[in-house]
């Protein structure tokens, strides 16, 4: 399978405030009653959105690609349905203070980059996106920067993840398959106790 290198994402941003936003909130369990991921985009944050004003509902953020979140985003359930729902809604990159590990791994498997930055930068970005929702942002994976027309911020990402996105090898399956002999050797070694 050929994979696309993901080096740069440009688009409008969407601020979503709050720590510890879990995957049950991103996609409630009733939407896991399915055997494909199709159609999940429509249900992203379904319950939160039904409560009233929510950035994913607001007209100024329709079509946004870059989600800006706070700490421990994506905690809880391992459901890949969560990043699938975000991706299918249109999100192509997530910037936050920190991410739950399983969620971050699931994002990478879809080619959805997650990068971290300081709480101060996140707050600044969220304020800017609230004041000026139409401003474009560019996330440069190779340079590890996020830039607006008038400013650039540094962002962080594990080097291996960065490389795999830039080189288009983020779909781990092919790499894992390539080491078939080493897998069989490990299995044989473990069987001996």
């Amino acid at each position: 399978m050929t994979m696309t290198a993901i080096q740069r994402i440009t688009g409008r941003g969407l601020p979503l405030r709050g720590n510890d936003i879990d995957t049950d909130r991103i996609i409630p369990a009733r939407f896991l009653r399915c055997v494909t991921f199709e159609g999940l985009g429509a249900h992203v944050f379904a319950d939160d959105r039904a409560q009233g004003t929510h950035p994913f509902n607001q007209p100024q953020y329709q079509g946004a690609k870059i989600l800006v979140v706070n700490a421990n985003f994506g905690c809880g359930s391992s459901r890949e349905h969560a990043p699938q729902a975000l991706y299918r809604w249109g999100i192509r990159a997530i910037i936050g203070e920190s991410f739950a590990e399983i969620f971050a791994g699931n994002c990478l498997a879809l080619g959805l980059p997650v990068v971290t930055t300081s709480a101060a930068v996140v707050a600044q970005l969220q304020d800017r996106l609230t004041a000026n929702p139409t401003a474009e942002l560019t996330l440069d994976i190779a340079q590890l920067t996020l830039s607006a027309a008038d400013q650039t911020w540094p962002v962080r990402m594990e080097t291996g993840v960065q490389q795999s996105l830039c080189q288009g090898t983020w779909d781990a399956c092919a790499q894992l398959l390539a080491n078939r002999e080493a897998i069989l050797a490990t299995a044989a070694r473990l069987a001996q106790g």
């Binding site: 349905h81 990043p83 781990a172 790499q175 894992l176 080491n179 897998i183 299995a187």
Partner: peptide
Amino acid sequence: IGTSQVRDVLATQTLA
């Protein structure tokens, strides 16, 4: 693990 990783384990018995 997530579902793409379930695929990886099924196919290779390994994970990245």
